[in-house]
Simulated assay, not measured.
Amino acid sequence: MKTLEVHCLGTAGYHPNESRHTSCYFLPHCGVVLDAGTGIFRLPQLIQTDHLDILLSHAHLDHVMGLTFLLDILYQRPVKEVRVWGQAEKLAAVQEHLFHEAIFPVAIPVSWHSIDQQPEWDLNGTKMSWRHQDHPGGSVGYRLEIARPGSTVSDPLAQVVYATDTLGAEDDQTLEWMSGADLLMHECNFDDQNQMWAEKTGHCYLQKVLQIAAHTQPQRLLLTHINPIAELNVKDQTASLPFPIEIATDGLQVAF
């Protein structure tokens, strides 16, 4: 069986800088896009499928503004179908405000799909489930179960958990749902010195993320939604954890 890859197209939180665009991650094998920040402009050359499923964690601008780039993206690399998934309230806000005629007066060729009524879906062969997260305005985390290239029906599915814009799970049910992933992609918007600001703004700091990872025991931890002005130091704090830890950067490809 071959490995799968996550491509980090945008890894910043809230605002970009010279080296980081805002949140967007792509799994080419299954055509799944995690959030649609400004980093989505890097998508066309990576598309391998005839469809795209864009999963929105919430509707804050750093996670949705890249939807307006889809006209050029799909001109460069046409696909048969693009589906945008999220909570109904968040999808309505994006359609009403981001695509208001006074802001962006052109329809984009996508269909909009609410996740509210079901805990899990099939995304063209990829299983998707979600959980509520604690964040101003609300957000959701996603768990994906993906068949590896060359696998058979009896082979285990690859497990990816994407948890961004969250204070961090503390309840046993959510931590159990997150556990045992091949790859845990977890936001780390603040360093430990700024724990107070993390809690005020509904985000995580490094020690909180490491505590969650220690509880959920992923095969690999990728820190995402990085504040460009934060200084994260994982070398001195991760020696006791039995899995590799990496800080996401734009252009990084993570195999799992």
Rank of each mutant, 00 (worst) to 15 (best):
A92G: 08
A198E: 05
H100M: 00
D50V: 04
E145A: 02
Q237M: 13
P156H: 15
T224S: 01
G168T: 04
R20L: 07
F243D: 02
L98D: 01
H29S: 10
I212H: 01
T201A: 01
T174I: 04
A239P: 00
L67H: 03
D250G: 09
L56S: 04
A169L: 02
E89D: 10
H63L: 02
T166G: 03
H215V: 00
W177A: 01
M128G: 02
A213Y: 00
P228T: 12
G150Q: 07
V254T: 06
T22F: 13
L52S: 01
P119C: 04
L167A: 12
T249H: 14
V106R: 13
V161H: 00
W197G: 03
E96N: 14
I108S: 05
F243Q: 04
E81Q: 12
C30F: 00
C188Q: 03
A102G: 09
E18L: 10
E145P: 07
S23K: 13
Q118R: 13
L52Y: 07
L56D: 06
G138A: 09
A230D: 13
V32L: 12
Q211A: 08
A92K: 14
S57I: 08
S154T: 08
S19G: 02
L91G: 08
A239R: 15
H63G: 06
I212Y: 01
L4P: 01
K200H: 13
Y14Q: 09
L223Q: 09
N233M: 02
Y142V: 00
K200M: 15
